[in-house]
Design a protein around this nucleic acid. Structure first.
Lengths: 168, 168
DNA sequence: TCGCAATGATTGTTATTGCAACCATCGGCT
DNA sequence: AGCCGATGGTTGCAATAACAATCATTGCGA
């Protein structure tokens, strides 16, 4: 039999992470929705675009940045476009690719939204993490990202190497 | 204007948390789905039940434990019941209330699932957190939970006090 | 330069999830 | 005892999100 449990410290950390994250996101999403009329995922997309060079990002890259399926992003961008917050522009170098560009209205919406969001993050997350703890958190999740970010796409559906692994 | 940004440390921690969590959960959920035929949320429910006194929990309590809407849980439990992993039992003390009880088959399914899950958590989460970091994480999210757990239900829909706030 | 696997994006379809509305029951208050 | 607001659970409906299939384009290797 394999070692049954994680050590207590990490087990507690993992469980707290799952539950805490769920509560946190539910709360921040609700706040954003009610006070700024946008979901947390829309916010995330707009932030990425606002920080991107030339205020634009190709769909695929944007999808990776926000950890979203491409189909999901297509429809989310549809919605943002309907709201006038982004527009699509064909890439001049790759005709398969489309940029999503944040508009002035989109930036304005973001300006309205971020104080709500930042206040929530401060109150419900940052307030509970002193600098050392915040650094620890950043380090851990930075490592998690480095570990998992490269192969999101592929491993989403199947496990190329492991599928034939015998289960001892 | 309000202070625009979080301090860099916490900003980085927050962003890494969001992205890292998304990657982590996507990966663990896919693993569980492919190798044990169950979603992470089902797993979570089964774990809660398996640890509960008498292997049972009322719907409302279970919903709070896994941070899930009551309607969502109703349907999830429907599915688990169809699979034979849980059964519903009427509470003898409160006739509005139903217990969800994990069956022997449910426990067996859990036995099959946990090694997959634990291995994933070890490899993709625990491996990146040394004991101090794990403790920091547990402390932070423990505090987040203490902060937000009490009032999930109420604040989900509206903000009693803030709804009439004028938007300057 | 031709062929073809890989990549970017979208659409059809389905599964998941939440809110609101609903009904039943509970429990405190009069 | 009898009301009535609060609580537990389910259902209708709509929004969200993912997978699989599809189409266009790219760029590499023969």
């Amino acid at each position: 039999m394999v070692e049954k449990n994680l050590d207590a410290t990490r087990e507690q950390a993992w469980r707290a992470l799952l539950k805490g994250h769920a509560l946190l996101v539910a709360r921040l999403d609700a706040d954003l929705q009610h006070e700024a009329g946008m979901s947390l995922t829309s916010y995330d997309v707009l932030v990425q675009l606002s920080e991107a060079p030339d205020r634009r990002l190709p769909m695929a890259e944007l999808a990776r940045a926000v950890v979203y399926s491409r189909s999901g992003l297509t429809r989310l961008v549809d919605a943002l476009e309907r709201r006038g917050w982004v527009v699509r522009e064909r890439s001049s170098t790759d005709r398969r690719s489309w940029f999503t560009v944040i508009t002035d209205d989109g930036l304005a919406a973001l300006e309205r939204a971020w104080p709500v969001h930042i206040a929530g993050v401060r109150e419900h997350f940052a307030a509970h993490a002193d600098p050392d703890q915040a650094r620890a958190l950043g380090a851990v999740f930075g490592a998690v990202i480095a570990d998992l970010a490269p192969d999101v796409e592929e491993l989403r559906h199947f496990h190329p190497q492991r599928s034939e692994e015998p289960k001892t």
